[in-house]
Design a binder for these strands. Structure first.
Lengths: 165, 165
DNA sequence: AGGATTTATCTTGATGTCGAGATACTCTAG
DNA sequence: CTAGAGTATCTCGACATCAAGATAAATCCT
């Protein structure tokens, strides 16, 4: 069964028969699937009145474990955004009462961002929903194939994980 | 060998042992890899003074074949952006001399966007570079695995391809 | 033919992000 | 102890995007 990428590659092969476009068989599909997953995620979070970017921050704090407290700097690394963006995100999450800013007792330059109870409840509920939805998406793929593909993707991601140290 | 997603999932399993997070073994890696690919793409295009979004539009026109001419509406569907975005993109590409707007002789509401020679040269060079770079990224994956993973990804994307229209 | 609906594109205002720079504090070397 | 380098966070301006609405033209229906 054909998909959009098959059509895309067919067009390129017609127009540029000199190029070998097979890398796109994998990588274009990764990009397109990721775009679709983003939209699906947004929809899953809508039921919990969370934006994707809100979930990203809350989830990083939740994963950190009690007392659900991280520095903005640490949050940057977890969420791969810049410092200006994180300031903005924390501002909005604090305004919604999902996190609060605490002064870092060990470094007066620093700040700690901590999940409130409401924030924890929100992220826990959203996470359960997200996983349920993702399980549906993967429904047609055998566990064996899922494990295989996860292994290949791990190899593909590794060079990038390494370069940022 | 571990990657960032392994660490992520380990944290979730510690904090929420009640949840089954295995869907993320595949889907989180897809999302993260896509983000890395975006950055890599941007870098590859830098040598040609193209932004990713510029390439997306030029590539859609290039794929269409001579005379490299599409309506804005058609470009929306190819690039998955909104009409306001496309107006903006075409404006900028026209200002750079990479495309030009022509009136549609068959529909006076309509416009046709056409690649200039400079636009065609730019996208052809960028495409060759992009593929070279992508081939490097996939270097460690056997052709057999690439074909396998492409097949699984095609299945995962299909539901999304279907739902639009 | 004429009025209503649909279609194609552009305009506008809001949003989230980035990147560069500012500020305040900490650490290190001498 | 202090000067300089380094670090953590925030501020600000620019930018690409989206969503909703405006405009204009084509198409449909009676």
């Amino acid at each position: 069964m054909e998909d959009e990428v098959d059509r895309l590659l067919e067009a390129w092969r017609r127009e540029r028969p000199d190029l070998d476009v097979t890398p796109m068989e994998v990588l274009s599909r990764v990009s397109r699937l990721a775009r679709h997953l983003d939209r699906a995620r947004s929809q899953a979070f809508e039921a919990h009145s969370l934006e994707s970017w809100e979930f990203d921050v809350l989830a990083a704090l939740r994963r950190a474990g009690a007392p659900y407290r991280l520095s903005p700097g640490r949050l940057l690394k977890e969420t791969l955004v810049t410092s200006g963006t994180m300031t903005n995100r924390v501002d909005r999450l604090a305004a919604r009462g999902l996190v609060e800013r605490l002064p870092d007792p060990a470094d007066r330059r620093g700040v700690l961002v901590q999940l409130t109870d409401a924030g924890r409840d929100a992220v826990d509920a959203a996470m359960a929903d997200l996983l349920a939805h993702e399980r549906t998406l993967l429904g047609s793929i055998s566990e064996r194939d899922q494990a295989r593909i996860a292994g290949v993707l791990r190899e593909l991601v590794r060079p990038f994980d390494l370069e940022k140290h």
